[in-house]
Design a protein around this nucleic acid. Structure first.
Lengths: 192, 192
DNA sequence: TTGAGTCGGAACCGATCGGTACCGTTTTGG
DNA sequence: CCAAAACGGTACCGATCGGTTCCGACTCAA
């Protein structure tokens, strides 16, 4: 058999939804771009939302695999996360994080797509916590929460500035955080 | 005259676009919610996009005025920015930053709405720089760039967690940043 | 070779999209 | 008091939305 229709649909969804937005891309566009017939679409997916969820699950897995590999390639230091980030910002058609974008576009927090998008971030946080714990940092959970804030801040800023600099700024602050967390205990709550 | 049609339209746009998204809300909804007739809509605005731009301009002005006032009420310290932020996160129907959301929803960076949304962030950065300079911090421009990263990171995180905690985490890191910037010179570029 | 499964194409559905034109009414300033 | 302006309601426009249905062609294993 030739390339599976389902696979081509998912690929088109990944490309178009990321580049132009979920609501901005209709089924028609997906069919034209993938070369799949309308009937075949609904043979593989219950609805457009179903494809959105599938695409987000694929994004989650791919992105986390990519990050883990990129960090491992750099020696496994938690700070390498931000070097990997800088690399991703340099990609020409970078348009932020598909998960953040989906949560913004699909406002209803109870919808399947929104839930899957939110779950992606929780998985990334779990990975960061693991990474920080492995590196011997105290309070890896509290640090991971701060890392994800820096990460998402860098992503949003990079989307706006079209630059890799935000990743470096975030790394700088993350390094500061690690240095200060090393000796003393890091609180889970309020700052001064 | 009764409440102006234009004003009611803008108010409905602010509410609905922010709560449900720009693409998710059609002209029909705006008319129903505002009680304005279809013809009146197009007497006041060239198009839906025109209303979007108007709404974003209003958001920009209102948000910056609110921030400046909230900071001033707290004594004018740059760190007060994050206390104000925490307060805004607590609002029941908080749905992130209308400017970030608009840039995500309207992918085309050359469109008027996207441009206005991006301009909002630049204005906030300018305010932050001014605030940091007034407080006597060295390199206020470099600090403002890091503050906006923390700010936007906190906003995105708060949207996901539905909590005010991200504002506190961001404040903590901002405080760390100010402490480290005080004695030594802060680089504009790369971290270790 | 035959039959089941997968495929792409196209006609069609009701609903909604953004936008226009015309209506009669209300409000308002001179 | 009257004319001009602003208003809300409605019918209508072509285009597109997500989704259903049927059809003929192709592939592949039995």
């Amino acid at each position: 058999m030739p390339t599976q229709a389902r696979e081509r649909l998912v690929r088109a969804a990944e490309k178009l939804f990321y580049a132009e937005g979920i609501r901005a891309v209709g089924v028609e566009r997906l069919l034209a771009d993938s070369g799949v017939g309308r009937a075949s679409f609904y043979r593989h997916f219950d609805s457009k939302d179903d494809l959105v969820v599938t695409m987000l699950r694929g994004y989650d897995e791919r992105w986390r695999n990519w990050l883990a590999q990129a960090v491992a390639d750099r020696g496994g230091s938690p700070l390498a996360v931000f070097d990997a980030l800088a690399e991703s910002f340099a990609i020409e058609d970078f348009r932020g994080c598909a998960s953040i974008n989906a949560m913004v576009e699909i406002a209803d927090a109870t919808s399947p797509a929104h839930r899957v998008a939110a779950e992606h971030k929780r998985s990334v946080i779990a990975y960061l916590e693991e990474l920080l714990a492995s590196a011997g940092h105290p309070e890896p959970a509290a640090l991971a929460e701060r890392f994800i804030l820096l990460l998402d801040g860098a992503i949003v800023t990079a989307l706006r500035e079209r630059s890799t600099e935000p990743a470096r700024r975030a790394k700088e602050m993350a390094a500061m955080l690690l240095a200060s967390a090393q000796p003393a205990k890091l609180g889970t709550g309020r700052a001064g």
